[in-house]
Design a protein around this nucleic acid. Structure first.
Lengths: 169, 169
DNA sequence: TATTGTTATACTCTATAACTATA
DNA sequence: TATAGTTATAGAGTATAACAATA
């Protein structure tokens, strides 16, 4: 896979829309004023975290291929299952999986009961790659968390639990 | 632009890796135990928020085109500036911008001083589209925030401020 | 006959290289 | 001669349609 050389990104100093910035410590009176503002700011912050983490990418493997390996690291799947989960067509997933198999990251085996199904799982190399990828993604965030005071980290810990709860709905 | 019909996504019930789930209210003693765990969980939660928001997409316009319009809504730009910001090549950006111009979302005008530069800005239609897109993205998050108690929203408010601070570094 | 997966073909987005216009 | 942008061409990923193998 030829690694595309891209121009240096311009890190524009995230400019919040006028009227979107919140005071650091809102008074109790206005605390519940606008759920919409909270939703907007939190969503924007989360999407920015995602973008920043992706900026740090090595691009050793294309994002959609990494996503497939990450999925298989949780549980072996069939081609059709992966296609539905990753929201691509079966032919596309078939191609991607064939590529990952050629690269030695994915094992293929026929289902014992239903010969049409192709059971997919990670090879040791595939598992190693995903492990390294997770460490890399975490590294950026860890350095940011280390900049904060313990009390601030505690706030983020509680917020993370809340987010996970809300996302599990 | 032919809207691709995709298979229904399988909403896998987000399975955190073993050993990655945190108690809802960690004791003060273990609160600062592992910055790495916090970093991992918070990053994962943010990326999941991003993915869920994108799931809700209408896909009226491709993501990279929406991104360009969003950028122009903050400030008019040249083709070269947009290419650097969005991390694509100049030819790619040239094509995308030409497409947005044909669709009536972007105005083109030559720079008065330097005839090589093409000044790009949103048309009224482009501004409307971006405004609607922001509302759509927020809608999902707003409904999630409404599920929470006021105190929980306050935690997320403080967390958002912390995230914004950390991201501005 | 229905379902799983692959192959055939076309379209989109991206890239690098070559070109035009302006400085 | 250098820079901003466009056009030419090719590669990668995705889609739908047609096909093969299995149930």
């Amino acid at each position: 896979m030829p690694t595309p050389s891209r121009p240096d990104p311009i890190r524009t100093p995230s400019q919040p829309d006028p009227g979107c910035s919140r005071p650091a410590t809102p008074s109790p009176a206005e605390a519940d004023k606008s759920v919409a503002d909270l939703a907007h700011d939190l969503r924007a912050a989360c999407m920015l975290v995602t973008r920043r983490v992706r900026y740090e990418a090595d691009n050793a493997l294309a994002p959609h291929l990494v996503s497939i390996l990450a999925r298989l690291s949780r549980e072996p799947r069939t081609v059709g299952e992966l296609a539905a989960i990753e929201q691509v067509s079966a032919p596309s997933m078939s191609r991607s999986v064939a590529h990952l198999h050629e690269l030695g990251y994915v094992d293929r085996s026929a289902d014992e009961r239903d010969g049409r199904l192709v059971r997919l799982s990670l090879t040791a190399e595939g598992a190693d790659l995903i492990h390294a990828e997770r460490l890399r993604r975490d590294r950026w965030m860890i350095s940011r968390m280390e900049d904060l005071a313990p009390e601030q980290r505690q706030v983020l810990r509680e917020a993370t639990v809340l987010l996970e709860t809300v996302l599990d709905r």
